[in-house]
Write a protein that binds this DNA or RNA. Structure first.
Lengths: 354, 354
DNA sequence: TTGTAGGCGTTATCAA
DNA sequence: TTGATAACGCCTACAA
């Protein structure tokens, strides 16, 4: 292992002082150096393969040019490709601005100081938290410490800086689409327990659409999912078992929707003939299910970029606040909800007492 | 923003010197301190909420306790959940040993020094590279600099430290399974172009199985995929268009398999009645395709953990070398390849002009 | 236009 | 059992 190259070596090689080297390497505005020395120094730096020691830089500047990314439930990363795509977006924004990304997959912190300690360690300049639960204690602590924290979704904290998508509106649109196709008994499976605020917003959007169409909300037609394909499968089975005869499903995410489609198939229902399904996210495989899934496109990568940029802005002292409805979402119509529903609702007498 | 707490503050609070504080906080072996001072110091540290400044630690120790994770093609992270799950595994291993994970999604480095500079910056103690292409120039540079680099897969470099799974053997088993069901014309779609060594190993495993069963390898039954569902769809269509009448497919990954299944469905082939499909990876949704996918379980999370541990071992100076066949893989049999194939090849007339 | 000197917060060596 | 003191490599007033 060879000794590393420092500004000192460059200075010696170029025959100037360390200060001069620093001035040149950092392109200081006020300082005027002769072009000749500048060239000499740069040449020396290149020749020696100089790369600044980031620890020293961090120590003296007090900034690490690193953004921390917290996944409060790392296992969720394996649900589908939504969070990973978002991460790539965040990373891209960071890269473009010369920041790095430190991944911190904190296992639902028993330690309430988990996030705060990370901040205090000066290892990161800012923090992005993806989809925390409402009231997360560790998160509250960092927020209240004034450390720059950007939340995707919301933790329900009054002082939080957060960005979220128009979940409510998009969900309303999706549901309305089903209604416009003639469906009246539309089930909904939330993508997560309702302590996750976006899940709640989607539920509300769904209810708003029903209300606007003067359709009742049936408690039995709703089930809480838990992110995964399997939970979608289970929730759908549960709903089907209740004899509440939905003819359509608005699923809180695409993966859930796939699980639900499996349950529908097993129940002998054919999609979209007997049953319509709409998903959420438009993950890449959504176009390849049988039939292809109608869904809300949530632009994970772009959202990620936005998050990254906002986090850096926050670090730079800009105000962000709670922006709960940025980013419009599109409804992507595919075959899974068919044309006009033929079976215009039902409902046999047995349905009356849901 | 309050001033941060340093060892100095603790020293003052506890009425001792900074040195003593350091000794206690780092639990130095040789040094004996009175229990009383120790307690006083620890109490002061806790009271003040002390967290060491990692930059200072890094600077003086020369170690960052951080592992860098490089994804040579970040876009691939959005293919499916395999890489993300592996990342979570890596992260878990790091967390367990007090390391952090720095994610570096380098966009196919135009800059051949990209990795090396990261290493030189002292920001990381070691590097994990997931699935590089053979001969990656930037990668070769770090490897040759002796910096600890662990590769998942292989870059084909003689001095590389790498870990890979038994791709060849698993692929052979998968193919043999199809053969044992009576299939003789088995197509294969690689999950990636063959500059990716694991893709090559899977192809070889497939060919080995054919050979062992005295079945010929038909060039037309092979197509190169490019990770995604869509590429699987396209490759399958291409194969079907060639009039080469396969009755089964061994797909290089599950997502590809899903795309292929879509193409098969559109061609009027029913799975598993007319056509058998086997995938690779056993991603969580594989059990929920229609029909559920027979596949190779590749234990992404566990592999990730192993990678993380090996990378840290490498940092600690242990030898790793090129371990190209660690980790046994299982064949998970589901419905997508049915029972014994009824249509014992070849092709009924109706299939002739697909 | 260039150089000097001090400090960022730790750890580590050695002396008391 | 403790405490000075010197690095680690870089940045930045300020002085020359």
């Amino acid at each position: 292992m060879m000794r590393r190259v420092t500004t000192h070596d460059i200075a010696r090689e170029a025959g100037v002082s360390r200060t001069t080297v620093s001035h040149i390497l950092n392109n200081h505005p006020g300082i005027m150096l002769s072009l000749k020395t500048r060239k000499r120094v740069l040449a020396a730096a290149r020749k020696l393969g100089y790369v600044p020691n980031s620890a020293a830089q961090m120590l003296v500047t007090g900034r690490s040019r690193t953004i921390g990314l917290i996944l409060p439930r790392p296992d969720l990363i394996s649900v589908d490709v939504f969070v990973p795509m978002m991460m790539v977006g965040i990373n891209e924004a960071c890269r473009a601005r010369g920041y790095r990304l430190l991944m911190e997959a904190i296992q639902d912190p028993a330690d309430a100081d988990a996030y705060l300690d990370l901040a205090k360690s000066k290892r990161i300049d800012g923090l992005i938290v993806i989809n925390p639960r409402k009231g997360d204690a560790a998160l509250r602590k960092v927020i209240e410490s004034k450390f720059p924290v950007l939340i995707f979704g919301s933790a329900g904290h009054p002082q939080e800086n957060s960005i979220a998508t128009q979940d409510g509106e998009a969900s309303c649109r999706a549901t309305t689409h089903l209604i416009s196709l003639g469906h009246e008994r539309i089930a909904h499976i939330s993508y997560a327990p309702l302590v996750y605020l976006p899940a709640r917003k989607r539920l509300e959007g769904y209810r708003a659409a029903l209300k606007r169409a003067n359709l009742p909300f049936h408690r039995k037609l709703f089930a809480e999912g838990d992110f995964s394909c399997e939970s979608g499968y289970r929730a759908m089975r549960q709903i089907l078992a209740l004899n509440c005869y939905p003819t359509a499903l608005f699923a809180g995410n695409d993966t859930l929707a796939m699980g639900a489609m499996k349950a529908l198939g097993e129940a002998g229902l054919s999609i979209p003939k007997d049953f319509a399904v709409v998903g959420y996210d438009d993950i890449p495989t959504a176009a390849f299910t049988c039939p292809p899934l109608t869904t809300i496109r949530s632009h994970a990568f772009e959202q990620g970029k936005l998050l990254g940029e906002a986090a850096i802005a926050l670090v730079d002292g800009q105000e962000i606040g709670s922006q709960q409805d940025v980013l419009p979402l599109e409804l992507i119509i595919r075959a899974s909800c068919g044309g006009k529903a033929t079976r215009k609702n039902p409902a046999p007498a047995s349905l009356t007492n849901l």
